[in-house]
């Protein structure tokens, strides 16, 4: 039975959304990228989370290494050691990366990034060019490392019409205690009072001078716009109550603060040097930094490409003020 609901999808609409790539290469667009270009693009768009050599930063995923570890304790699963198909890498980078700015890469940039990831896994040499023509030549080492779900056979003994009810074991000993490992979040212990507020990170306490600065009423529309723009920053920076330093430092009280003021955050040498020279993040300096971070400060760890529109910079600064004041 047909209901006659919906309307035909137009070819352009299908082309806009139907981007997935299958293991046999179905779906890859025309284009190419070499390892050298990939290294540059990767440094600009990926390294902030994945490291310059795809080795991963903090808890962010490592993309390289780990070959031969799958049968060890805590195997290292990367594109090189674990992923079965190149199509998966291409597809994921193309549709879901960079984190916070997905679907912003051109096909050539994706080819280049993927070529560099292959290189960083020692799977191709530095002359390698990945393209729609060479795509199917690449085979990943763990392509044959997967079997189909075999639980019905390998675990057939878990199906048991008469499970034991009495005298199932002779003795029972405690062999492992969670309390010894002690990894449960503090505020959730049974012995903690139920109504205790989670402890705020001390680093999130706002510098006293900040509240004095926010005397001028902020334009709520501009702040709202800035909050949207701030999504680009969110993958690395937190702001507001409970904020913590992540890949980037917390931004509470950043306006008017001296450079490199967040205690415990490991700033780049360039940032520390600028701080020693007396750099203060007033609005003008911050605007210049946000426009082109790497041009403004050579050697900064902030690998963000920059905000192209002045209006976005103005809005983000308004948001930084407002979110600090909250």
């Amino acid at each position: 039975e047909k209901f006659g609901l919906g309307r035909p999808a137009l070819p352009k609409e299908i082309a806009a959304w139907d981007l997935d790539v299958a293991p046999d290469g179905t779906g890859v667009p025309k284009g190419s990228g070499d390892v050298f270009t990939g290294e540059e693009v990767f440094a600009e768009k990926c390294a902030v989370c994945h490291g310059d050599f795809a080795e991963g930063v903090g808890n962010w995923p490592k993309l390289a290494g780990g070959q031969g570890t799958l049968d060890h304790d805590d195997p290292l699963k990367t594109v090189g050691s674990y992923w079965p198909y190149l199509s998966t890498t291409w597809d994921y980078v193309n549709r879901s990366m960079p984190f916070g700015d997905a679907q912003s890469l051109t096909p050539d940039e994706v080819y280049a990034i993927v070529a560099y990831i292959l290189y960083s896994n020692d799977l191709v040499d530095d002359e390698f060019v990945l393209s729609d023509a060479t795509f199917n030549e690449v085979e990943l080492p763990n392509a044959d490392g997967f079997i189909l779900d075999d639980r019905q056979e390998a675990e057939a003994h878990f199906w048991n019409p008469e499970p034991c009810m009495e005298n199932c074991k002779e003795s029972v000993e405690i062999t492992m205690r969670a309390m010894v490992l002690d990894v449960t979040p503090e505020e959730d212990r049974a012995d903690a009072p139920a109504d205790v507020e989670p402890v705020q990170d001390a680093a999130a306490e706002q510098p006293a001078e900040v509240s004095d600065e926010v005397v001028v009423a902020l334009d709520p529309e501009l702040v709202a716009k800035g909050e949207k723009t701030f999504r680009k920053c969110k993958s690395c920076h937190q702001i507001g109550a409970g904020a913590k330093s992540k890949t980037g430092p917390i931004l509470n009280g950043i306006i008017g603060a001296p450079a490199a003021h967040v205690e415990g955050f490991r700033y780049s040498k360039a940032m520390k040097a600028a701080a020693e020279d007396g750099l203060v993040w007033d609005e003008a300096e911050l605007a210049a930094f946000l426009a082109k971070p790497k041009t403004y400060m050579k050697g900064t760890k902030m690998s963000f490409a920059g905000l192209k529109k002045d209006a976005d910079i103005e809005a983000v600064i308004a948001y930084l003020k407002a979110a600090t004041a909250e």
Partner: peptide
């Protein structure tokens, strides 16, 4: 054919002691 997306290859597959991994363990 299946897409073999990131979420069904690099994640949500179950690695056994010998290093091989089960897939499609839905």
């Amino acid at each position: 054919q299946p897409v073999e997306s990131r979420e069904e290859t690099s994640k949500y597959t179950d690695t056994l002691a010998d290093g091989t991994s089960r897939k499609w363990t839905w």
